[in-house]
Design a protein around this nucleic acid. Structure first.
Lengths: 227, 227
DNA sequence: ATCCGCTCCGTACCATAGTACGGAGTCAAG
DNA sequence: CTTGACTCCGTACTATGGTACGGAGCGGAT
């Protein structure tokens, strides 16, 4: 149990010296008393605390949450359920973040899939789609979703949402997305499992809902609603 | 095409007045010339630009990336591939973020699963696990992953990874996780689909790999490797 | 005796995406 | 002719998690 100066403590806990000072200011770790005019030394307990902070951070806890956990740890009247509820809240937060990213990823996939990958920007489907958003899942439209706003220039296109049964995982959704994207006349596809649904932007002059339904049902899924 | 003051423009684009000023400072939108001493007015094009920014933001693009997209849009020599590559990069970024969050979620699940949910903190498995991390997936261990570092106090525990076939969706993974968690002697479980795998921390004095394999295969999955 | 490396401390700065505030001006209605 | 609503502009502040800088002091080696 050798005496550690701040630099040695930082090496031991694999953090930056400035980070230790920062945590001291934030009250996450104690600021050890200074022996006379010499350098402060950091006990093993502080190193453990630093490691705890690092570990909790890797689980996505914020410093504020970590401060709470550290307080709980030192509180003899604290209950294990207090800790658990924080972990559960964190888990829920992670779930929400993943869901949001998955929606973003699906939207990007749809954009990328429709891109011709070459040529001038006049016909860039990606910029086009950002300029004229088709469906805003975030902002609930006051109008009936059946009657999508049809921006000029894409007025011949049609958007339809299919409710799909039996499509429970991301892999299934990918399969359906791939099938739909390869149909002629399909311009953009968004597929989500949980609940199973596919939103398709297509040219009704080339393909129709019946053909799309057949495409979705080919691998064994069932379209339960078309809207 | 009525003339819009900043407040009207903000309402039209569904952003804050201060946000418009902020974007002007960042150079994302033009700062319209001021007619004499009267208020500036914002053309329809700026409203469209604001909507474009909002839309791109909802896809996760940062303001810096959006500035690039806006520049590309105005550049007659720009190619569609330039736009596409940015969308693809964004997609990749989203994929990485999801993967990281999924790792965090799995780790939290494992912690929550082992928690007795009541009692004093002396035996809090969650705090315990944060204090004594079992396996650092972030920091690649130099040792063979078979031989996990065994922190003191958990030395009787064993960690085994099962490769599982047929488990392709999150729902399946949940099923397996639930089954494993309810086996006596199992302390922590991490399950992932794509590729199907389960990492189980268990007490070899209570349960063994054969029992665990049987548990996983009960609903119809196949364990293809045990390590 | 002086330089190096380390420490201590306060303060400022980074990115990100805004939000808030305060003072001054303008315009229309009451 | 005052009040209220709006505008303009600069500056400061929010949260998050640090990083960097500069001056001062201290101990050991050269």
């Amino acid at each position: 149990m050798r005496i550690r100066t701040i630099a040695a403590a930082a090496r031991a806990a694999e953090v930056n010296v400035e980070t230790i000072r920062f945590y001291e200011r934030r009250g996450l770790i104690a600021h050890p008393a200074r022996p006379g005019h010499g350098p402060r030394h950091y006990p093993e307990e502080t190193i453990a605390r630093l490691r705890f902070i690092r570990e909790a951070q890797s689980l996505g806890f914020t410093l504020a949450e970590i401060a709470e956990l550290l307080d709980l740890r030192a509180d003899p009247s604290a209950d294990c359920a207090d800790v658990r509820s924080r972990a559960v809240a964190r888990r829920e937060d992670v779930r929400i973040k993943i869901a949001r990213l998955e929606r973003i990823g699906a939207a990007l996939d749809a954009l990328i899939a429709t891109c011709p990958s070459r040529g001038s920007l006049g016909a860039c489907t990606i910029l086009d789609a950002i300029e004229h958003p088709i469906a805003r899942e975030a902002a609930p439209s006051p109008a009936d979703p059946t009657e999508q706003r049809q921006p000029e220039g894409v007025s011949t296109m049609k958007t339809t949402t299919f409710a799909i049964d039996g499509m429970h995982c991301e892999g299934c959704a990918e399969t359906v997305r791939g099938l739909l994207e390869h149909e002629a006349g399909v311009k953009a596809v968004q597929v989500g499992h949980a609940p199973g649904s596919a939103r398709v932007l297509f040219d009704p002059a080339i393909i129709d809902e019946n053909r799309l339904t057949a495409t979705i049902e080919r691998p064994g899924y069932r379209v339960t609603a078309v809207k």
